[in-house]
């Protein structure tokens, strides 16, 4: 969805930043979003305060709330899909290959 939304709205992006936290996602506050998401998902109590402050300074309070909310939402969705055994769709296979990710056999599309 990142690629689709960026292309449809004519915005720059770099998918490599999904797998490489040192890469620039070419999005507004991209580096801050990376650090914030990593601290939130990994429950890094040491990094979370500074990551939150950095995102607040770069993009504002509403951005902090939404980044936290979206990370939370996908904490839910990831768990549901992995537990129910929902397979990767064919479009996802293409993106996984582009990012150098190997989809495990139990999630391959039929």
């Amino acid at each position: 969805m990142l690629r689709v939304s960026a292309e449809r709205t004519d915005r720059t992006h770099d998918l490599r930043a999904i797998v490489d936290p040192m890469a620039d996602p070419l999005l507004p506050a991209g580096a801050e979003l990376t650090a914030f998401t990593d601290a939130a998902v990994l429950r890094d109590a040491h990094e979370m305060p500074s990551a939150r402050t950095a995102l607040l300074d770069a993009a504002g309070e509403a951005a902090v709330i939404r980044a936290a909310a979206v990370a939370g939402n996908f904490q839910m969705m990831n768990r549901l899909l992995d537990a129910i055994g929902v397979r990767v769709h064919r479009g996802g296979m293409t993106i996984a290959a582009q990012l150098g990710l190997t989809v495990p056999p139990h999630l391959l599309p039929r």
């Binding site: 969805m1 990142l2 939304s5 960026a6 709205t9 915005r11 992006h13 998918l15 930043a17 999904i18 996602p25 999005l27 507004p28 506050a29 991209g30 979003l33 990376t34 914030f36 998401t37 990593d38 998902v41 993009a59 504002g60 309070e61 509403a62 951005a63 902090v64 709330i65 939404r66 980044a67 979206v70 990370a71 939402n73 996908f74 904490q75 990831n78």
Partner: peptide, 16 residues
């Protein structure tokens, strides 16, 4: 919604 859709999708992808 505070973040543009592309930014939301980046957070989603990184979380996943």
């Amino acid at each position: 919604r505070g973040l543009h859709r592309t930014q939301m999708e980046f957070v989603a992808a990184r979380t996943s």
